[in-house]
Amino acid sequence: MSEQPSFTLDGRRIPFRDGQTVMAAALAAGVYIPHLCFNPEFAPHGSCRVCLVKVNGRVQAACTTPAAAGQLVQSEIEELREIRRGILQMLFVEGNHVCPACEKSGACQLQAVAYYVGMLAPHYTHFYPRRSVDASHPEAVIDFNRCILCELCVRASREVDGKNIFAVRGRGINARLVVNTPSGKLGATDFSVGDKAAQVCPTGAILLKHHGYEIPIGQRLYDRKPINVVGDVAQLSESRGGRRHD
């Protein structure tokens, strides 16, 4: 019987199965690599770049790099923490992320990853883009100010819900999330709060309507423990901001 192949991550042996990525194998072994656009239920996307690791000395996205026997992978090193902090700092100034008033604060993956990588201030000049809030749907609201273009809602709607409600339009700095209807309004779609797409947002961009702040401070997802201990928003029952569907 042959031994399961493995690679080394920050000095720890990580076994993997054929076809697994560095990220998938690390998470399966209980080792956290920070990420935003990665969700094990969907095909890796490799767009947020937060999961950058060094594989045999070369910087690559852990979520898209296939695991290979004998790889030497580094993750928790200052060089990468600096890159990750920079990415988070850019994400925070590119949109309008007003944590003090955001209902998702304390249960937000973006915020939790920022804390994890040691980002405590935005650093860069804010773009302050003019973005809208789409509250046309009776049960959900989309705050485009908080979208980080992870495309998890796009993938969830297309691959799980079979509705193809969301898309990303434009390129580069002009890329933005849109709703696939002539009016561009969520209210014109058959979107439902029970959809997978309603549950995967790592920020406060897609929220339940008429509800907010129902989990007391101190009991929210990341109030007591950091994300590397708690896990992702989407993987937990509190993923809907801990709110009740009533």
Binding site: P100, A101, E103, V133, D143, K209, H210, H211, G212, Y213
Partner: peptide, 14 residues
């Protein structure tokens, strides 16, 4: 203006 009403008590306290 343009913000959801349920957000306001937390927003305006700032």
């Amino acid at each position: 203006q343009g913000r959801p009403y349920w957000e306001v008590p937390v927003l305006v306290q700032r």
